[in-house]
Design a protein around this nucleic acid. Structure first.
Lengths: 369, 369
DNA sequence: ATGAAAGCGCTAACAC
DNA sequence: GTGTTAGCGCTTTCAT
């Protein structure tokens, strides 16, 4: 609307069109397109014409109109990364890598925060504004509207989560392995009553996740699984606080001595709430996170966690999605490995006592296993 | 590309067009448009036709093609929020509010992470894909390519920062006041050697910022301004660490006893680095942040900071931008207030001694001034 | 109250 | 090598 002025003269405020470039370069509009989209057989255009077009285009600051190009090509070269909210730093780290990789592949990556109700945002993806969509975050992925997306042939993949359309290609880390490693670590440190704080459990869970890994580790150590130790809390720092409050209200004898948190965000809340109640971490309560976000190195105590290859995840997501866009859904499911990173919040290898909870000087102040 | 199948039959994978709806409803395409875009004078369409069209459209799951609509309307109803990187939680909090407000106003908000080199991302904004652009973050705002954007009439505003085009409407908080409040707070606590850690200083700084507020407070207290106490460091947690390392290398006698950090992110780094060197915060070194991000309530010690009205900032940005899009640039500069939030990292009001650095139970564990 | 027709800016198939 | 032509899906006068 504001883009092109009413008078449509050369003046400021008017975006030049390919016709403008054509006129000034003394060629036709198709030549402009040919030069700018330089196909493999560039032999078609003479070097001289090519240069002339390029220079006129540069002088005018010509940029092809996105809408017109998309309409004609039936492709926008834009990928949408949809998530419920940006306030988990986890996605920021995934996005950075995804953005760079997408750009290298000739795609623009835009992030769409779906906000409170994802239905509207997902429906908005249907207008053909994007060549492909990456769905992240529970609320986004599990929305029933997702079915409609794929039914219409929009290239869609799911990151980390489940979705109503189980045929969707997915890129994930090995959540079960993560849950197993986290829990086993706590068990090895001598804990026998270990809580697991998780986000609302999904209705239908086809693939194993953190909880299954947690149970596996317990079983392996011949420890009982106690449903009362699985706490549900909102996926936020505040949610982590809530969970710890609940936990601390338990009778001393039944109270867990360790908690495996759904993610680092909730673990941050856990650390804070423990401190508020003068519960020493890790001495009185061991906390293990999940995700490996950078902030975990900045908390007190520093967070022991299950690290994800976040950059690789971003790249894999784009890679997989581009395959789907091009109609080559080679691998329908990619599973990336996780890694236990031992810092301070569980005690353990990185230091002897909780009395001096400082880095031992190792790279990133952590021990990786 | 993947959107509409080659065979273009009714079958799955083909997005229905307005022609499909028209055919099934037994009306013309213009009627479809009229019904769906329901102008004020809806009297034009009979109730019966209207219902028939609506029901067919719903049955087919018709969504107007974004490219075609944008091309025709010369408006996309999409706003781009461009920033260098997502890894500062500050923007996440601004974005949440911005997204909701934009949605309420009929716009879609997309976030464009510009990545390392902003030039490419900014240039990509030129194709008319967006009705308006919000520029945030130093690297994005200060790119010379920004000039080109506005020269072509794209509605553009700047958030918080400066830009080469000084005529751009801006939405900002009162950075100078923030710098003043932070520094004055430290002075009132008895500090006389106060460092200011900042991001690379801009070349031409037309409007006063944190640094000017810092100097003002010093002057007011008749304290000398020592350029050696102004440290430059990268805008990241790691940058905050670096700055504190530099600071701790100073001779004891010349070393500052307090640091006013560029933002909370850098302050988190500062807290961690101080701890690593066994420098007690706030006893040996007081730290004050800037931004008021949620994480500041989860650090140890909790961060004293200058809080911004982040939600209001997001709303104001959208509001202002929509005015520009509509050609009513009422206010060319909006300045929002900041507020000192006293927690633990400077000592001070919220508690007596650093020995028990726990919340006093106040809401959000902070004292606002 | 509804339909016919034009055209947004671009690309690609086909002429020449 | 380069121009001509058609048409992507939509909205919007202008007829009727």
């Amino acid at each position: 609307m504001a883009q092109r002025s009413a008078t449509k003269r050369e003046g400021a405020g008017a975006a030049p069109t390919s016709a403008d470039v054509a006129r000034l370069a003394g060629v036709s509009r198709s030549t402009i397109s040919l030069v700018l989209n330089g196909q493999a057989d560039q032999a078609r255009i003479s070097e001289e014409t090519r240069n002339r077009v390029l220079s006129v285009a540069a002088r005018l600051g010509y940029t092809p109109n996105h809408a017109a190009r998309s309409l004609r090509r039936r492709s926008t070269r834009v990928i949408a990364f949809v998530l419920p909210t940006l306030d988990n730093p986890y996605f920021s780290e995934v996005l950075t890598a995804a953005q760079q990789y997408a750009q290298a592949k000739g795609y623009t990556l835009v992030v769409v925060p779906a906000g409170g109700e994802p239905a509207q945002a997902i429906t908005a993806l249907q207008g053909g504004a994007y060549d492909g969509v990456i769905l992240a975050g529970r609320a986004t992925c599990s929305a029933p509207e997702v079915m409609e997306l794929t039914r219409r042939g929009l290239a869609t993949i799911v990151l980390q989560e489940h979705s109503p359309d189980s045929t969707l290609p997915s890129v994930r880390v090995d959540l079960e392995e993560g849950g197993y490693l986290a829990t086993r670590h706590l068990i090895q440190l001598g804990h026998t009553r270990i809580a697991h704080v998780t986000e609302a459990l999904p209705q239908q869970r086809s693939r194993p996740g953190r909880l299954e890994g947690y149970r596996l580790a317990l079983r392996e150590a011949a420890l009982p699984f106690d449903p009362a130790l699985v706490l549900i809390a909102p996926n936020s720092m505040e949610g982590g606080c809530e969970a710890i409050r609940t936990l601390l209200e338990m009778k001393r004898s039944r109270r867990p001595t360790a908690a495996f948190m759904y993610n680092d965000l909730m673990a941050f809340g856990a650390l804070r709430e423990a401190r508020r109640h003068r519960v020493d971490v890790p001495r009185d309560l061991a906390i293990v996170g999940f995700d490996g976000v950078a902030m975990g190195q900045y908390t007190v105590p520093m967070l022991t966690t299950i690290d994800h290859p976040r950059a690789a995840l971003g790249v894999a997501a784009i890679e997989t999605l581009i395959d789907v866009i091009n109609g080559n859904p080679l691998r329908t499911e990619r599973l990336l490995p996780v890694e236990l990173v031992i810092r301070e919040s569980c005690g353990g290898a990185a230091h002897q006592q909780a009395s001096h909870p400082l880095s031992t000087g190792r790279t990133k102040g952590s021990t990786r296993m």
